[in-house]
């Protein structure tokens, strides 16, 4: 076991899978010598050389299209999009092409591509450099959208993502990169995609969340415990496809649900989770489902961000509303 930050766990997952499978290759802007702007690929260029770790020109649609072509021909490309706000430049490659090709070809072809990218807010990068666009990806059939909430999960989920036969969008919350460490086994291991984790068990209310908000939800659950409210926290880990079963089982047990996401409110992962709970578990509910999300505005700049982002306090408020309904 080593005590690693999430960024270190990610580098380790990439390194070990590259060592194991020579079909795995990495490319993107500044990922080579520089090791990526967040240093996720640090040391890999020196270790594997430019045949397998490539700096690309500034050309996202090219990066996405190249990944597609390489995967078609049997490679397992890992493409880095420097900040997920730049995904609009490569939307067709990911959503219009990669995601749909297995279906279009009647299941004859798989595209084992991983698109890795930093995302999320709270580190005071401006808009386009701090966005929560996972909802856009989740709405696209044919993509798996994976979002780890801690170093241990990051390594296991990324290893699974690289080994997966289909395109995976792997989103790494910037605030989690270096904010804490976890015990991470040195050997390789996988965590299944499409399966949620129960990050904390509880009996009064189910908090469903993912990414950085898992931290805030756990903080909230701890404070609620002191007031004798027992909150269960579900970490989705994969936001598409959703692990509906784990969510429903929990809600049936607790009778209350609060959805928490950092993304803006409208039409995202949370809206889907809430819709599924209402369709499948409405008779188990003792209170309306709560929803904690960012306001439906463009990502704000400057000091406003601190107030704009959801936090433990907002979660506690919604949990109490549900509990005291």
């Amino acid at each position: 076991m080593a005590n690693l930050t999430m960024i270190q766990a990610i580098t380790e997952a990439l390194d070990q899978e590259m060592a194991k499978d020579e079909k795995v290759m990495i490319f993107g802007e500044d990922v080579g010598k520089n090791g990526g702007v967040f240093r996720a690929t640090q040391g890999l260029f020196d270790k594997y050389g430019e045949d397998r770790v490539n700096d690309t020109p500034l050309a996202e649609s090219g990066i996405g299209g190249m990944a597609f072509g390489l995967a078609m021909q049997g490679f397992r490309p890992i493409a880095e999009i420097q900040f997920f706000g730049f995904v609009f430049e490569v939307m067709d490659s990911i959503v219009g092409q990669m995601a749909r090709t297995r279906y279009r070809m009647g299941g004859k072809v798989n595209l084992p591509v991983v698109v890795r990218s930093p995302f999320g807010g709270g580190v005071h990068t401006p808009e386009m450099h701090a966005d929560n666009l996972e909802g856009l990806m989740a709405q696209s059939p044919g993509l798996k959208v994976v979002i780890p909430s801690n170093p241990y999960d990051a390594k296991g989920l990324l290893t699974s993502a690289i080994r997966d036969e289909d395109p995976v969008v792997f989103l790494e919350h910037m605030k989690l990169y270096r904010s804490f460490r976890d015990e991470v086994p040195e050997e390789q291991y996988t965590i299944p995609l499409g399966k949620a984790a129960i990050a904390r068990e509880g009996k009064d209310v189910t908090i469903v969340t993912y990414g950085y908000m898992v931290r805030e939800a756990l903080k909230a659950a701890e404070q609620l415990e002191a007031e004798n409210i027992s909150a269960e926290v579900i970490d989705l880990r994969t936001v598409s496809p959703l692990d509906i079963e784990t969510i429903i089982n929990s809600v049936e047990k607790t009778g209350r649900a609060v959805m928490v996401q950092e993304a803006q409110r409208q039409a995202g992962v949370g809206a889907t989770v809430i819709s599924e709970i209402s369709q499948r578990a409405i008779l188990s509910l003792k209170a309306p489902i709560g929803f904690v999300a960012a306001p439906d505005t463009v990502y704000p700049f400057g000091t406003v961000e601190n107030d704009w982002l959801p936090n433990a306090k907002d979660i506690i408020g919604k949990v109490k509303e549900a509990y005291n309904f």
């Binding site: 500034l58 430049e89 450099h129 400057g302």
Partner: peptide
């Protein structure tokens, strides 16, 4: 009004605009 920041400067009076998205 402080909403854009240094990569998003707009001054319509002199027809100036910019974007943090390269290209």
């Amino acid at each position: 009004k402080g909403k854009g920041g240094h990569m998003h400067l707009f001054d319509p009076a002199v027809h100036f605009s910019c974007s943090g998205i390269v290209g």
